[in-house]
Amino acid sequence: MDLAAILISWFPFLLTGIVATLGLVFAALGVGFVIGLPAAIGQVYGSGPVRFLVNVYVWFFRGLPLLVLLFLFYFGIFPALGLGDVSPFVVGAIVLGLHGGAYQAEIFRGAILSIGEGQMTAARTLGMNRMQAIRHVILPQALLIALPGWSNEYPTVLTDTSICYAIGVTELLTRASVIVSTEYIAMPIYLACAGIYLVLNYTGIKALHLLEKRVSIPGFEAGSN
């Protein structure tokens, strides 16, 4: 059987891996957003203890290798909590999310800090409470400013998903490795796999650029306020 035939016969198998990889990416970006945004708000507007907690979270999850985090959660923390039979995919998505959330917190914090302090004061003067000011005045602007930095998370998270191979998530790289060990041909399979990652990378970045252009408000850029 020649190479093309082998690749075609395995394609559905790889496709399921691509779906799993993209699932990990979306779950990770989503979890990261849900954690990262409140963390950033806590870091900027929170009380002392809140700021301390967020700082510890960011320090821990940015300082540890993703591989160590995956091992820690998959073999250590989840079983210790009695969650030993949670699927590797879910553990992978949560760990990628916690890891990415620490980076996203930094992105959102930078964006929030770039909004002039006077805006908070102005909102308070208009009778809004702090929460209202954050929700209606600060965040709509900060999220827009954060978008380019946030877009950069996509390629990082995409390549990071491959590390979930280590805990047995059947994503793209795991499936490519299965093919390699079944067919005894390594190089073409791995290169095809790299090609798929590059395509996913490129398409995602293009899509995010389109989104950036769509939501941008003319005359409103970072530093213009």
Partner: peptide, 21 residues
Amino acid sequence: AFFKGCPLLLLLFILYFGLPS
């Protein structure tokens, strides 16, 4: 473009498992 887009783990597999072929 290639080395930023290719996951490092896959790159290691290429170098270690792929190159012998």
